[in-house]
Design a protein around this nucleic acid. Structure first.
Lengths: 161, 161
DNA sequence: ATAAAACGGACATATCATATCCGAATATAA
DNA sequence: TTATATTCGGATATGATATGTCCGTTTTAT
């Protein structure tokens, strides 16, 4: 059980977008270049961020992706769910109802203890992610980047804008 | 991102084993019958429970699977990890090091903020699962089963022992 | 008009989940 | 000793999902 790579890409991209000047849009070609990712595949995830309302897009020359909201108003869970969908990790197939001891569906009033336990754990996972804003992510990124990387980022950015 | 069905099966099987009299072993054929599952495939997961030391096995006539420890000393996380492996959901591919702003590996001292955030969330998930013992699972199962199911279980059990 | 860009669908490939089968090892009982 | 019941591990098949590429359409700035 593994999250898709797209999740990592999407968070990094959002964090990069959070550092751009307002009203500046970055096209997928630049985002892919910055992280050395396959452009067309990355586009899939960017489109999902767009559908989820986390980024806004503009077409045509000078267009691209920007955050749709201030980075403080986006949390990591939203990004993860935009990419992964909102399926539960654990999908109960109700095997308690099968086999020689199973009885008619109507007798099972609520989810079984196993499903409740698994879902509570998922809720804890989600809560941790929801508690971290994109702002914090981008700030951590800035703090922990080697000085040389920050300089290279800035000069890359000047070359593209 | 989805847990395998084997996880659900394994927890249910362990819960069933928790209700057996001591020194009674249930073969995979009976376990598969009880939940109406494909026997050979179920066996894969039972073997993983065995490798993880959660169940013990005995071969030959009268053999089968039993819990290796009292149900109070097994928690749900152990069962899940036996089946799913202990891979992280989030596997950081360090894309921060790639592209035009990346610098030499030696400059990155610790995991990035994104990886730390994702791992903290996973830790919360694990903690919830580790906090629930197989004993509690099996007790919930007993409490929430329709009366008719309990009776059918007992009579099935008498027919196999 | 031209070029730059997102968008969406079609397609190809790779990896993993699901499933089945079989032979070998092991243990019990007749 | 033989027959039978069982776990164990490897080989193989199939299906679903993740990964990746390509192309035609739409939108928009210049």
């Amino acid at each position: 059980m593994k999250l898709s790579e797209g999740t990592e890409w999407a968070i990094h991209c959002c964090s990069l977008l959070a550092n751009l000047p307002p009203d500046f849009a970055l096209p997928k070609s630049r985002l892919a270049e910055f992280f050395d990712l396959p452009e067309d595949y990355l586009a899939k995830f960017l489109q999902e961020l767009s559908r989820a309302g986390l980024v806004k897009t503009s077409r045509g020359p000078g267009g691209g992706y920007q955050l749709a909201k201030p980075a403080g108003q986006i949390n990591v869970l939203e990004i993860v769910q935009a990419v992964e969908g909102d399926q539960h990790f654990f999908q109960c197939t109700e095997i308690r109802r099968c086999g020689p001891s199973g009885v008619a569906d109507k007798h099972y009033k609520k989810p079984c203890g196993i499903a409740r336990t698994m879902h509570r754990a998922e809720a804890a996972w989600r809560a941790e992610l929801a508690a971290v804003s994109l702002n914090e992510i981008s700030q951590m990124g800035a703090e922990e980047s080697p000085q040389e990387q920050i300089e290279k980022s800035l000069s890359w950015f000047e070359s593209v804008m």
